[in-house]
Amino acid sequence: MNTTKPISNRLVLGRENRSIWKRMFKDRYMYMLMLPILVYFFIFKYIPMYGAIIAFKDFKFVDGINGSEWVGLEHFIRLFTSQDFYKIFRNTLFLSLCDILATFPAPIILAILLNEVHNRVFKRTVQSLLYIPYFISWVVLGGIVINMLSPTSGVVNQILGLFGVEPIYFMKSNAWWVVAYVGSSVWQSAGWGTIVYLAAITSIDMEQYEAAIIDGANKWQQIWNITLPSISGTIAIMLILKMGHALDLGFEHVYMMQNDAVLGISEIISTYEYRVGLEGMQYSYTTALGLFKGIVGLILVTGTNWVVKKMGNSGLW
């Protein structure tokens, strides 16, 4: 392991290396305990990172990763000059943006409103009910959404029918599909997301509110000037985590709701990777796409982290 680094900033300056070995020997069970898991990280996380070099090769299973022929940037050139790339890149960004714009503020608002509820039973009941959608799988979510929005037997069209609205085929219309996608996202995650913010709000000093009330601040001013600034650190961290996954938009959620009629708007990077890469067996080509996605994701996380730190909050690292 890396033994030299932490030592330099410790007290052991004068002593020779023996004390390091001594300390490591004292912790031998610790190293033995985590060794299998470090091997796991190496095999299942770092080897695939190495495997991503097939983006520069023509990968065939018979030749293996090392035996396959180098082709340079061929796959990247094909990727960046293809029509598909701009379509899926645009769709991914668009859906991501809609998703973040809707799902990011929702739990913050809910948490602030829940915090204003003084009846404990009511508060706890509402919270429990809001958490439930978080625990179902995307397949179930997709099934329920498609069921509810069906033009023949869906409950949404039944209700609209009561007001004399003609049945709408929601899942076959681009615009409605995006609404259904974002709506189901909010439905699934908003309640669960409140936990983190409620925890942050609970730790705000009550005296601040009391002082504000004496100064005549109304509810809105209290929320805007005390609650929100106090939880801005939490908000920043959650934003970094969200941004990092901007291009890594959940495969399953989109895949479960997709149908041929709306592929033009719903085909995103990960569903394309699956369809063309795994089903179509164009391994190297889609690895190039995956690599592009991974690097942009890395830049987004580190970039957001940097901005958050510049703004005076503590970042993720």
Partner: peptide, 18 residues
């Protein structure tokens, strides 16, 4: 090294190949 795997991964296809 462990946290880095949370920020970057080889991607869908290399995992499948492995």
């Amino acid at each position: 090294l462990i946290v880095f795997t949370m920020l970057f991964s080889g991607g869908m296809i290399p995992n499948f190949i492995l």
